[in-house]
Design a protein around this nucleic acid. Structure first.
Lengths: 210, 210
DNA sequence: ACACTATATGAACGACCGGTCGTTTATCTG
DNA sequence: CAGATAAACGACCGGTCGTTCATATAGTGT
């Protein structure tokens, strides 16, 4: 029998803890988050969670993976349901803005908080975050390349350059929307990407006007 | 006599501490920075610095002001030496990229680190940072408006929109250059702003080709 | 000479940090 | 049933955090 209600209960705890950890980390950072507060927030004892991880860094690594999965479900998957090409590229950006607007994570964006925290701190966590960011960037570049191949973006378009711009305009949305002008930042972000894509698209009717 | 060598010595200590604090905060954040490490880095004792500030928050507020001054000296001032209009706008962006490339601050950008840290943490520090960011944004908008009035940017240009884009493309440069691809991020950032400005400028010869 | 003040110190504080320990409870196996 | 094992617990460790305090030193005003 592999029924083992022990393991099932453990997995449920694990998932609950990781969900809480990613949410808290989007606010206070992945290292700023303390085990004590995480234990309080999840309702378990501080010690009883060394049953799942050997230390804080192990938990941090799993939290990065959990956040990657959440990102794929909330941003990548909806985009893949849009038709390939420039519409899919814009759907990706809109999914991201929706993720921010709906406040799925209390701190806005897990990866932004963690990037700012670990970009100067060598170690396994930094590498895991860099890998996730690299995969994300490669995904955007792939969508750009597909759009070019479909003739929906100007032939000379540089995927790396356009991917940088889309990512920059998306990241800035969450920073500015939380610290300054709320809704305006999301509007500016949406319009910036939309107009950039329309400018490169031979058939602008594929995209909304505004 | 107001000669007072005590005060002069105190001011020198104060400046030295703030400089160190801003540098360290660009790496570890303004709250992640501990008084003990700051004391070690500056060579003074941990306690002997309650002579200058009543607590950590006071120091943090002064550090924000110090970083604002540094930003004005390194980025705003050079831009003001360029001719008004679109060239000044691009000079501003280039000064920023130079600031990052020259690694003036060990962590890249003080304000980015602090924004990510305090955007969810209410308090005096958050307000001070938000004010600094607002002033910076207003400055970019002013340069855009001047360029429009000089006929160097298309008449319909929305200053808030363009300012958002320039700021987003600048911020992303420091994030990505530190975590992923180093020089490439700066190149992409420069090219993105340059092409955007050239596209809006009736006389593109005012700007470099690439 | 004197009091005064600004600057700095080392020792000590309570709180919290990540982590270890032995133990208990619940579940599965034989 | 007994034995093994996963999950969770409370108590506690050494260390670091921000902060306080009594004290020492040096520069200033009278």
């Amino acid at each position: 029998m592999t029924q083992d209600g022990r393991r099932r209960r453990g997995l449920r705890s694990r998932e609950a803890i990781l969900g809480q950890a990613v949410g808290l980390a989007s606010v206070e950072g992945l290292d700023g988050l303390s085990l004590g507060r995480l234990a309080t927030a999840t309702g378990i004892s501080k010690s009883g969670f060394f049953a799942h991880w050997s230390g804080k860094e192990e938990l941090q690594l799993d939290a990065v993976d959990w956040a990657s999965r959440q990102w794929r479900e909330h941003i990548v998957a909806p985009a893949l349901r849009a038709p390939a090409g420039v519409r899919r590229l814009f759907a990706l950006h809109e999914a991201r803005l929706r993720f921010y607007a709906e406040r799925v994570l209390p701190g806005g964006c897990f990866f932004l908080a963690v990037q700012a925290e670990f970009d100067d701190r060598p170690g396994a966590v930094r590498e895991r975050v860099a890998q996730a960011l690299h995969d994300w960037d490669a995904f955007i570049r792939r969508l750009v390349r597909e759009a070019v191949e479909l003739g929906e973006l100007a032939p000379g378009t540089d995927p790396a350059q356009l991917a940088y711009e889309i990512e920059a305009l998306g990241e800035a949305a969450v920073i500015r929307s939380r610290l300054l002008d709320g809704q305006h930042a999301l509007t500016h972000s949406r319009r910036a990407v939309l107009q950039r894509l329309r400018g490169l698209c031979p058939d602008p009717s594929l995209l909304p006007e505004d």
